[in-house]
């Protein structure tokens, strides 16, 4: 247990969405999500837009106030909503950081890159004097492949890939253990994506980092992660080792997600038969009863509408929430 750096149990995050009193409505962005991440590991989280993957990452860092659930970090309870425990986050912000999706919106345009990276050092009082502060900033920029002359420039002077590097340098400045990577490469060009992915891998090796890697692109997540969790409409539907998940997936949603990815190989593409899902993702304001995937699932029956499928471990480390996973084997 001790090597489980991050442990999430029954995490819930509801956002109010209009209505008063008893008629108050909630968007069930994340509902009953449980997983753990071991030290030095990368856990990938995939799903379509609106499935709650970003919300999960942000709630863990308490950027949102959780509606329910428990989060244990390195043996210490960070929050436990049922028992009304919530610790002061500031000391933990040094250990947990986040890299945001949009490198154009997540950097203050009026601050120099040096100050953006240095802000975290100031907040946590990590530098004794100006020289030390400067040295840390340069060291961080160097780590992400930028150099000292970049420190005095402003974000608009950089390309998308370079900005994302600045965002990563900012996260690294406090020497964290755990980083939530929230779609860090979706906004980048293909040829730049590979550079940034490789950098994430190098940094992990150098600094012993643990990642929660959130993305909608399964092939990227598969590449970088040890294990992958698949989310659909606020719930985890499957979680397994990344190779196991991509080759022996059990949940019908995971299967269709994998088959929907266009393969960059014309011969394979011509031969493969796609499972094309019908319809759209239902609204999280009013999710279907029972299994939330049932409205688009080819195997759905009455049981799926009546009972919420249990989150169970079907083989070592392979979790799935589906009544009919046996059929999908």
């Amino acid at each position: 247990m001790s090597d489980r750096l991050v442990q999430i149990e029954h995490l819930r995050q509801y956002f109010p969405a209009g209505g008063y009193g008893k008629r108050k409505k909630y968007v069930q962005a994340v509902d009953d999500v449980s997983f753990y991440i071991e030290r030095g590991e990368t856990l990938g989280l995939v799903g379509e837009s609106g499935c709650g993957k970003t919300t999960t990452g942000r709630t863990i860092l308490r950027l949102y106030e959780p509606t329910g659930g428990k989060f244990t970090y390195d043996g210490n309870v960070i929050f436990d909503v049922e028992n009304k425990v919530a610790v002061d986050m500031l000391p933990y912000r040094k250990k947990m950081q986040i890299v945001f999706q949009d490198p154009y919106a997540s950097l203050d345009p009026r601050m120099t890159v040096g100050d953006i990276v240095g802000e975290a050092i100031d907040v946590h009082k990590l530098a004794a004097n100006k020289q030390e502060r400067y040295d840390i900033i340069i060291e961080m920029l160097r780590r992400v492949g930028l150099n000292s002359e970049h420190a005095n420039r402003y974000p608009h002077e950089f390309s998308g890939g370079q900005r994302q590097r600045v965002g990563i340098a900012r996260a690294l400045a406090v020497n964290p253990e755990f980083i939530v990577c929230d779609e860090p490469i979706s906004a980048l060009d293909v040829s730049i994506q590979a550079q940034v992915i490789n950098m994430f891998e190098d940094l992990q090796e150098e600094m012993g980092l643990t990642y929660l890697f959130i993305a909608h692109d399964l092939s990227v997540v598969k590449h970088i992660s040890n294990r992958i969790g698949v989310m659909y409409l606020g719930r985890l539907v499957e979680l397994a080792d990344s190779y196991e998940l991509t080759t022996r997936s059990l949940h019908p949603y995971t299967k269709s997600l994998i088959s929907a990815i266009p393969i960059a190989d014309p011969k394979v593409a011509r031969e493969s038969k796609r499972i094309v899902l019908e319809g759209d993702v239902p609204s999280p304001l009013n999710p279907p009863s029972g299994c939330r995937f049932r409205t688009r699932c080819p195997y759905a029956d009455e049981r799926c509408a009546a009972e919420v499928p249990e989150w169970r471990e079907v083989s070592s480390g392979h979790y799935v929430a589906c009544h009919h996973y046996e059929q999908c084997r």
């Binding site: 730049i192 994506q193 891998e201 991509t246």
Partner: peptide
């Protein structure tokens, strides 16, 4: 581009 069908972890060549 990362591939989905490889077992070994291959480093990307950017």
């Amino acid at each position: 581009i990362p591939r989905l069908d490889t077992k070994e972890h291959e480093r990307l060549v950017p």
